[in-house]
Design a protein around this nucleic acid. Sequence first.
DNA 1: GAGACGTGGCC
DNA 2: TGGCCAAGTCT
Length: 249
Amino acid sequence: MLQQTPVSRVLEPWRAWLARWPTPAALAADPPGEAVRMWGRLGYPRRALRLHAAAVAIVERHDGEVPSDHDELLALPGVGSYTAAAVSAFAFGGGEVVLDTNVRRVLARAISGVEFPANTPTAAERRLAAELWPAEDAARWSAAVMELGALICTAARPKCGDCPIRDRCAWYAAGRPTHDGPPRRGQTYAGTDRQVRGRLLEVLRDAEDPVPAARLDLVWDDPVQRTRALESLLADGLVVRRGRAYTLP
DNA sequence: GAGACGTGGCC
DNA sequence: TGGCCAAGTCT
C-alpha cells in the first residue's frame, strides 16, 4: 500500500484490510476482485491484484507464512527491491538498505550535494548506501533516514533549520543549489488513459452486480479512448467480461 | 531503460 | 490554481 502512496493516506485502509484479512491465507481464500474492491481509492489498483497474488503464492510456496528471506520475498508478485528490503529489514531484522524515495533524497543531498537523486536508483547509489550503512542496527538506520527524508528533508521546502545533520550536509554547505538537468518526472494525468481506467474501475468497485457496457459508456465521452482503457483493464485482469457486462474478477 | 500506472493533499 | 509528488513495480 505504501508504494507511491503517503503513509497518512494508507493508515485507515490498512487497518480495515487487516481486520478483514488478518493472514495471507484469509486474503487468498477470497476472489481477487474483493481485494480490488477493498483497495478503494488508494490508487494503482494493480497493487491490490498483486497483493492478492502474493497471498496466494505465500500459501502455496511458503505454507502461509511470509518468508523472511530477501530473495523469496523478491520473488513474490508486486514485491520489488524496495519492498523486499523493507519487509526483510523491518519485520525480520534483515540488514538490507531500504533504498526508498526518502533515503535516496537524503543521500543525494547530504552526501552527493545535489537537490534530487536520479529518476531511478543507480548502481552507484546502491554502492554508496551499502558503504555507508552500519552492520549493526541496519533496520534502525533505514527507518531513521526514511523518517528524516519524510519529515525534514522533504522534496519541496526542506526544513533545514530542523535538520540534525545540517552541519554535515553537502547540499546545505553548497548553498542548496537547485536541480539542473532534465525534468525529474512528468506525471501527467488529466485526460490520460489512467484517468479513464480510474473512472471505469470506480463504477465497478461500487457495483455489486456485473455492470452493463452501456453504463460504462457514460464515464468517458471519447469511445476510442474508453475502449482502449477498458481493454487494458481486461488485459491486466482488473476487470472480467460477463457476456455484455463487466465485473471485478 | 523509458513509460505506464491512481488518487489526493499541499502551497 | 495547477503542478508537484508520495515507503515503486513491471514491461
